[in-house]
């Protein structure tokens, strides 16, 4: 016998001090923040409390993007396309949706963030990234 079941449980996740500053900046200023490490200088995005490169505590937040380049792309049935995007000024890449175009995105395509008209303090306050106007 196979017994059918489902798990659906509301849950509250703490974004943390630095993560919250990142999300508030998306919501209130339409700005993307990276965290600059005071030790190794790595600028990581999204901004988090700890440098992913060396583990140092991060509290120096700097604006990155909104433009960047697509490093990789994938497309899955029933989902918007995803990109691995290196934002201008960041040393790490951000995974987010790619909005315009169909089929494979070529490496190094220039893109820029498109913000949602209604923002709530969520990573989806960025609707996704679209090809920069005038980019060839």
């Amino acid at each position: 016998m196979i017994l059918e079941g489902s798990i659906r449980l509301p849950f509250s996740y703490a974004a943390g001090v630095v993560g919250s500053r990142f999300l508030v900046a998306l919501r209130d200023e339409q700005v993307i923040l990276g965290g600059r490490c005071s030790d190794c200088g790595t600028v990581s995005c999204p901004a988090r409390s700890m440098c992913p490169e060396c583990g140092t505590h991060v509290d120096d937040l700097v604006e990155v993007g909104p433009g960047g380049t697509v490093e990789a792309w994938t497309e899955m049935p029933g989902k918007p396309a995803f990109g691995l995007i290196r934002l201008d000024g960041a040393d790490t890449a951000l995974i987010h949706h790619l909005l315009s175009g169909e089929g494979k995105w070529q490496p190094n395509t220039r893109v820029t963030a498109r913000f949602a008209p209604e923002r709530v303090g969520d990573i989806n306050d960025i609707e996704g990234f679209e090809e920069e106007r005038g980019a060839s």
Partner: peptide, 26 residues
């Protein structure tokens, strides 16, 4: 990550696809 990745619908297969595309390049 429930703050920056899960809300976008990213799963292990998404990341595998991005990794494969990065390696494939042109």
């Amino acid at each position: 990550d429930p703050i920056f990745l899960q809300p976008l619908g990213v799963d292990f297969l998404t990341v595998a696809g991005l990794q494969a595309d990065l390696i494939a390049g042109s």
